[in-house]
Structure formats: structure tokens, C-alpha cells
Design a protein around this nucleic acid. Structure first.
Lengths: 118, 118
DNA sequence: TGTCAAGTTTGACGAACATCTAATTAGTCG
DNA sequence: CGACTAATTAGATGTTCGTCAAACTTGACA
């Protein structure tokens, strides 16, 4: 199990649902599963939702923690996973770290698993 | 943690990505996370891929097990989770149980998390 | 009815995970 | 520098999960 996520090309538009197109090989399945797992937790779904809603304005850990009802340490742990999956990015601005969504990568994941893609 | 998955209406077309539309409440986030978790495993991704590829013809446990390289018991365990998440259905036909994809439910899940939905 | 094949369930075990508290690192401003 | 805030990391703990072997169930067929 690789510590860092394997490279998944999101610059090229993924289409015709690789999941439904035919038997997916073990390596590709692992890459998809790791990204799905990054989002497969109720707290992370809420965090992603909050971060998507805030958009380019960004959300900091100290605002997100009370919004989802866990400690800042736990939020930081979840944000790390979303970051490693390429779903958000965090940039330090002074004392805060602002998290912003990487919408294209989330969209690419959807394209891969959506059987009605095209 | 409910044993059976909560009801998620897939008959009505979900649109405008509830995930990106605004802060998702804890209950909705749990429902989405449970469904994502059902697919967030490399073996289950491969099973879903095989079942989607086979389509209405159906796939039985005894064919799926060697295809993904685990025992039939393990495949049965994974298929149960895909079934409970509403992603596949299994029907007994004689001595075999044939699994077929429920594409609409998978598509609905994609619509919920895709920020580029509409 | 007895035997065999396909499938599921049960029980066990090790790995991965979510969460917290406490300690540590970054950055701000007296 | 020293006090304070934001964020992350480290360590600990209880829970969930993936897997297999073994037992059980369901259906076919002699």
C-alpha cells in the first residue's frame, strides 16, 4: 500500500467510464479505491462539502473543526487524507492554512466510476 | 451506525451536486459516506467493474472469485456490501446466484459528489 | 434419499482507521 | 525575547475491516 497516491492523470479528460468499460486491472482498481476511500468517511464528506461551498475564499482548520464537531487535530488528520488524494490543497497565509477544493480531480473521479458518463 | 443503508431516492434525478451546493448535514454526509465506502476497496472496485462489463447477462460468485484472486467466501462478503449499498443485485437461478449491476444507483452517487454535475 | 456443487455465514486474527490528549512547530505581536 | 494562536505530529486506544478456513444452506440430480 503506497504511502503517496499513485499518479492519476486528471488533465486529460477521462471518459467512457473505465469502470464500466471492461475488467479493470488490479493496479487501476487500487488507485480508484484509494481515492474513494479518501472521501468515504462522514466527517470528510462534510469537510469536502464545506470546502467546496467556500470555494476560492478558502477554509481554515480552526473554522472547520467546530463546524463538523471534532478537534482540530482530527480535522488536520482528515484534511491530510483529502490532500493526499488530490481533492483539496492547503496554502499557508500568515497564521492560518487555507484549504481550497481541487474540483477537477473530484470530477475526474466521478467520470471514472460513472457508468452513464458518455 | 445503521445496519441497513438509509433510503436514498434514486428515482428522482439528483442534480446540482448536493455536495458542492452547500454545507451538507451530518445525516446526509453519513448516507453518502456509507455508499462510497461500499466501493472504496480495490477488490470491490474490480468486482463492480466485472459485473458492469457482464451487464444483464450476470456474473456468479464462482466466476468472480478466481477473476479477482480471493476465496468465494471473501467475494460473497464483498458482494453483500455492494448489495446493501444498492450497487448490485443478486438473483438465484438454479444452483448459481447471478449478480447484475444497478447502474442508476451508481450514477446517482456520482451526481451527488460531482461538483461539475450541472 | 443421498451426494455433490454453489453460495453464504460464522469465528478468528491481524491490519488499518478515527479519535483524543499532549507535545511540537510556525507565525504574530507586545 | 516571551506570550499567544493556528496547525500539525506523536502516541495511545478502541473500533472497523479484509481475509481465510470451517460449518452450514440451498438446489440439482442420480
Amino acid at each position: 500500500m503506497p504511502r503517496a497516491l499513485p499518479v492519476l492523470d486528471v488533465s486529460a479528460p477521462v471518459c467512457c467510464s473505465p469502470l464500466a468499460a471492461g475488467a479493470m486491472d488490479a493496479q487501476a482498481a487500487l488507485e480508484v479505491a484509494l481515492r474513494l476511500k479518501a472521501l468515504a468517511d462522514p466527517v470528510r464528506v462534510r469537510l469536502m462539502s464545506l470546502i467546496l461551498a467556500a470555494g476560492q475564499q478558502g477554509s481554515c482548520t480552526c473554522d472547520l473543526a467546530p463546524a463538523v464537531g471534532v478537534t482540530e487535530a482530527t480535522v488536520s488528520h482528515h484534511l491530510k487524507q483529502l490532500r493526499e488524494a488530490g481533492l483539496v490543497e492547503g496554502t499557508r497565509e500568515g497564521m492560518n492554512v487555507f484549504y481550497r477544493p481541487l474540483r477537477d480531480n473530484l470530477t475526474a473521479l466521478c467520470r471514472i466510476i460513472d457508468p452513464a458518463c458518455c
